[in-house]
Design a protein around this nucleic acid. Sequence first.
DNA 1: CAGTCCTGTGACGAACCCGTGACATCCGGG
DNA 2: CCCGGATGTCACGGGTTCGTCACAGGACTG
Lengths: 223, 223
Amino acid sequence: MLLIEDDPRVRRSLHLALQDEGYEVGEAASGAAGLHQLRAQAPDVVLLDLMLPDTDGFAVCREVRRWTDVPVIIVSARTDSHDVVAGLEAGADDYVTKPLVAKELSARIRALMRRAHQPQATDPRTLDLGDISVGVDSGVVTVGGVEVDLTRTEFRLLVELCRNEGQVVSREDLLERVWGYGYLGDGRIVDVHVHRLRVKVEADPANPHHVVTARGLGYRAVP
Amino acid sequence: MLLIEDDPRVRRSLHLALQDEGYEVGEAASGAAGLHQLRAQAPDVVLLDLMLPDTDGFAVCREVRRWTDVPVIIVSARTDSHDVVAGLEAGADDYVTKPLVAKELSARIRALMRRAHQPQATDPRTLDLGDISVGVDSGVVTVGGVEVDLTRTEFRLLVELCRNEGQVVSREDLLERVWGYGYLGDGRIVDVHVHRLRVKVEADPANPHHVVTARGLGYRAVP
DNA sequence: CAGTCCTGTGACGAACCCGTGACATCCGGG
DNA sequence: CCCGGATGTCACGGGTTCGTCACAGGACTG
């Protein structure tokens, strides 16, 4: 269990309460530290505060979701329904508000673990799109067996499209999932990177067969 | 989605709100009826009220869990933490309290479905209208297996008609749902786009068999 | 510190889509 | 049979969306 919370007092009391319930608790006081720890210790649950010194909690959550399906519970003082929706949309599994009741939090964690630990198909390590192969972990992309060099943004863009193979992904979704929450700017940036991506992975970039545009809707990956 | 709730007013408003979100909602007014429906229609989510005329909601939840792992969300007026814990211990996945915020409930349902449905990669929602197949998420429409190219408006129009298959949809409704609120102008624009749609999806656009006009009322989709 | 690569922005043209108006056509009722 | 309202059809102008390029700033490396 990883506890991402900046207030030392809250962190401490939560730590103790959870320890009493039998959890091994790791701590992080900022979003960056949390993400770092996440990769280091691969916890089975993440408790995430929204108000962090460095990053927005929503952004942290989205970043987490880019890497793993670990259960995430947002713990926040913000009780507004909009925040709840935003948190869940960011990929969190649950959203509980302070002041916390330890027993309830614990019950929610158990309910979530129960659900999450069911046999589930692990996220495929490589995504295929016809003759394009995307190594999600390795970061290696090959087209027809030949390795191509993608930049970080191009890679994330391709992954995001492949994850929703066949479905239209809107510019807004792409901006949110590739560029991150709170990115300001028009969606034109997506076009540019789609173009750059096409140049690298499409046989004929002018007539794309894998990264196709759904005019007025977004982009879509087809095999 | 199965809604087990005894208060008719709450049931109705919830039903409408969830329908707007695109769910097919089944209803039950008692625990016994709920369990019966559960087996009959195998819903993908269960919303369960705690105060039921016949049985305790907790007992219903436990009974549900003996049969299936379907996601269960308890919807209750009881805000006490003990009830939350009891509900989750009874096997529920989430516990939300009244008064409800539709958006939040919807977000929680989505979060839960995301978690619960992980094994089966998101089933592509498709609407069928005879030999016309509409991929709601993919934005792909095929007629007799052949993919046709629809513009955004044509696509939305078709989706809206298919959602109410068999029923007449008025011009006003279409204007509101396809073009958006506050659209100013006569309903003639609908005619034009219906025509353009017919040209693309009907075998004989002059004698439409799928997008038929209900003179003086609106349009209707028939298989 | 210089060079290189990546990224985001602005601009521009082309393709496309949309809404409107005009006219033809159909349907039901008097 | 005729007429009026409703619907079908078409062409066109304006607006939007997308593809593409060039460029400047930033990050990273050696």
